[in-house]
Every structure is written in structure tokens, then in C-alpha cells.
Amino acid sequence: MTSLLAQWNYFLVIILMMLGFYAVIARGNMVKKMIGLNIFQTSVFMLYISMGKVSNGTAPILTGDSSTVYSNPLPHVLILTAIVVGVATTAVGYALIIRIQESFNTIEDDEIIELMDDDEAASEGRAS
């Protein structure tokens, strides 16, 4: 039991991950999808960061004392990169949402699908 509780950070990660993933799949609103995606990604960031923690370790800045225990800095560096990538993804996503709002006047999935079907019918009509 203690070992399970000791891993509370993983449970947190899993809960966040499922929350985010659920929002991505189940929400029709594109902004909500993006938020879900962000939560999903953030859970992964936390997975990495928490694994870099070494018990009783301090921040990985050289102290000059050879007995100092440091946390692992590499996951932090990786996640710094991943955050940058995540921000870029979010930016592209919202840019797309703005363009979708401009052209379709909605950002609801099901309404857009209807409008797309109309477009399909219209282009078929044009071709014939």
C-alpha cells in the first residue's frame, strides 16, 4: 500500500492524461479540444519532471561539495524542448481555429461536418 501511495505522482499524471485525452476525443468545440490536448501534453511533462527527481536531491546546480545529491537535469532539458514544441502546436492550432471561425462561422465539430457536406454537394453540382 505504501508503495502505491509513494507513487502518487504517477496517479496524478494518469488522471490528468485521461482528463485531457477525454476532452480531445469527446468535445466538439475545437477550443476545448485544444485545451484537452494541452492538458494531455502537460501530464506527460509532469511524468518526465517527476522521474527526474532524486530523493533528497537538490537542484542540479554545482555546489562544489562532492557529497551533494543532485536531481537528474536531463528530463528538465527534454521537457523544455517539449514545452516549446507544445507551445508551437498550440499556436498553430489556435491559428487554424481562428481561420475556421472566419470561414465557417463556427468552431463546433458537428456543424462544420454539416457545412463540409454541403460544400461537397455544391462542388458535385458544379461539376455536373
Partner: peptide, 20 residues
Amino acid sequence: DRRALPAAFNYLILGTVGAT
């Protein structure tokens, strides 16, 4: 064709999920 936008958005969502 404006339908490129939702196509790109869905591609982004699934692509990001895959990468994650």
C-alpha cells in the same frame, strides 16, 4: 477549398496525440 482548415486541424490533433 475551405475544408482544408478542418482537415488540417484534425490532422494536428491526431498528429499531436500520436507524437505525445
